[in-house]
Nucleic acid binder design. Structure first.
Length: 579
DNA sequence: TGTGAACGCGCG
DNA sequence: AAAGCGCGCGTTCACA
């Protein structure tokens, strides 16, 4: 059922079989790291759920040895969810003093550095079959070891008001951790020759670091000429700002969108310069040399890295790959990229969360924004979009603010949900996603500022500051509930895609090479978008899997509520060809 | 010489 | 066209 894995200080691995309630159900096993992958591979026949402290630290070992697992439970990620969830506030896990499980993980998934000890594994356990020290130790009587923690987590879920949702959330979060490790391992196919050609075309020939490529240098000269400032460094914002002012341009910043408002000979070359210098510094040759290894981009994904449950990444800016360079993401010969994105995901999530059947109806089988226009709510798709974003982000002014009342009239339930979430945040309360992830409470400073506004001696400035800060937090909680629930949908979607892909019959009779060189697999994830690298012959099958997975995810979160989750799917050779 | 804030811009 | 959510990262510059 469950196999609990932890590491010893000397790099060995301990495996403890556990039953449905986390109780010990068999003898413990000690394995060298060399024997571990083979053991895991054997056990996979029974589809156990592997329970371990941190997927990012253990799973890469298995992947290197060519072993993948089906199911896992990531204790660290699940602890974070249960600790904050409003659905488990009465549990001992949530009420305990902060422990090692609340500390941030070390930066690197370093194998030897953070092993738990034999003692950690058995500490606090009184179940049959356990051997090892039974008392003493550095932590509380409740037990700090992974088995004790796992039992607390199971207890917290069982006793919660929504155990089904939480179980789904923890499984999806853990599956996400597996996928993150697998995607980092497999890498995104990247053609450095294509990338280099693209850079050369845009910037000029490659030059040594610290020197401007030809096209950039030409633009810098044109900027200096247009401003009459021969010595100007266009990379220095203060200098640029001063020079623009001197030329009579009353700018308040050097942001591109503000510069666009002005008419002056410097504007055109300056905007071009900004675009190209950004390309050079963010995704230029230096980036390419640093991050592309053997034709693959291997960013480190961080599941749960964003408070809302979205993923973050570390290194290489993987979630910010500009459209400019996506042409370098190219499938291998005889392979394809299947790129799918969930169309208008967040509005659809909002419709389902709030049970707003009218809004769900607007998106039935069609672009949701187009559906809103068709329903006569607003005149154009752009208006529909800007109004929806305003509702979910908390816009108060501008075009978005003006359109909001019409949206509220057409979709009262959806808008009421976002308003309720915003009011809760303004009061300093937390809000909770569909599956049970709760927003953090505001910090000490926030509370102090609010308290100050209620002080009899409070000034107008105190009150203004408190009100403004309260609204800020309200916009955060307003968005949290939608963004967080959308992240849950996306995790379920991706987990389902992974599961189905693994059920495909192998295309070659095992043995030679890695699974990732032979079978379709996920290579990229971007909040509401997934990419699968697949042998060309299987591309149509993969498309079907991705589409079915979206429906499955929708049912997992919202059961029978009639909301569509439409996808845009493209089978392409290059990422640039997708949408 | 190292550190961090401010700025700006890429993505959803 | 530029308000309103969540991020990561590169550059410059002030300050320790």
């Amino acid at each position: 059922m469950y196999l609990l894995v932890s590491r010893t200080n000397n790099g060995e691995l301990l495996v403890l079989p556990l039953g449905p309630e986390g109780e010990v159900s068999g003898p413990a096993l000690r394995l060298t790291s060399r024997d571990f992958p083979g053991y895991v591979c054997d056990q996979e026949a029974d589809r156990p759920r592997w329970v371990w402290e941190d997927t990012a630290r253990i799973y890469p070992l298995l992947l290197k040895a060519g072993v993948r697992v089906h199911r896992a439970h990531d204790l660290r990620l699940c602890h974070t969810i249960l600790r904050l969830s409003s659905l488990t506030q009465a549990s001992s896990l949530a009420r305990a003093e902060p422990s090692q499980w609340d500390r941030a993980p070390a930066l690197q998934p370093d194998a030897a550095a953070s092993g738990v000890t034999l003692f950690d594994l058995f500490d606090g356990d009184t179940g049959a079959g356990a051997e090892g020290p039974a008392e003493g130790g550095t932590d509380t009587a409740a037990g700090a070891g992974p088995q004790a923690e796992f039992r607390r987590q199971l207890d917290a879920v069982r006793a919660s008001t929504e155990p089904g949702r939480l179980r789904l959330l923890l499984a999806a979060e853990s599956a996400g951790a597996l996928i993150a490790a697998e995607m980092q391992f497999a890498g995104l196919p990247w053609r450095t020759d294509v990338h280099d050609a693209l850079l050369t075309r845009e910037l000029g020939a490659r030059v040594a670091p610290g020197i401007r490529p030809e096209r950039l240098e030409n633009l810098a000269r044109r900027i200096r000429d247009a401003l009459g400032e021969p010595g100007l460094n266009p990379d220095s914002q203060p200098d640029l700002m001063r020079a623009l002012q001197k030329a009579g341009l009353r700018v308040t910043s050097t942001r591109a969108w503000e510069l666009k408002e002005f008419t002056h000979p410097v504007i055109e070359p300056l905007l071009e310069y900004k675009k190209l210098s950004r390309l050079l510094s963010a995704n230029g040759w230096y980036w390419m040399d640093t991050w592309i290894v053997n034709g693959r981009f291997h960013p480190e994904y961080i599941p749960g890295g964003v408070v809302t449950g979205r993923w973050a990444t570390r290194g290489g800016g993987a979630l910010q790959l500009p459209k400019q360079v996506r042409g370098a993401v190219v499938a291998d010969a005889d392979w394809k990229l299947v790129v799918a994105d969930a169309a208008q995901l967040e509005p659809r999530i909002l419709a389902a969360l709030s049970g707003d059947t009218a809004m769900a109806q607007a998106g039935r089988g069609t672009d949701l924004y187009a559906g809103i226009v068709a329903g006569g709510v607003v005149e154009t798709r752009e208006h529909a979009k800007v109004a929806m974003l305003g509702a979910m982000y908390g816009a108060t002014s501008g075009e978005s603010g003006r359109l909001l009342p019409r949206l509220a009239k057409a979709f009262p339930r959806a808008l009421a949900l976002t308003e309720t979430a915003a009011r809760a945040g303004e009061r300093g309360e937390s809000v909770t996603t569909r599956l049970g992830r709760s927003s953090p409470r505001p910090g000490e400073r926030w509370l102090a500022t609010q308290a100050q506004a209620y002080d009899p001696g409070a000034t107008d400035a105190d009150e203004r500051r408190a009100r403004s800060q309260a609204r800020d937090w309200g916009r955060f909680t307003r968005n949290f509930i939608v963004q967080g629930s959308a992240a849950e949908w996306a995790l379920c979607w991706m987990a389902e895609v992974r599961r189905e892909l693994r059920m495909l019959p192998p295309c070659t009779p095992a043995a030679s090479g890695s699974e990732f060189d032979q079978a379709p697999h996920l290579v990229f994830f971007l909040h509401d978008e997934v990419m699968v690298h697949t042998p060309a012959a299987l591309a149509a099958t993969v498309e079907g899997i991705i589409r079915r997975a979206a429906d499955t995810a929708g049912r997992h979160l919202f059961a029978d509520f009639p909301v569509d989750f439409l996808l845009t799917v493209a089978t392409v050779d290059s990422y640039a060809q997708a949408k």
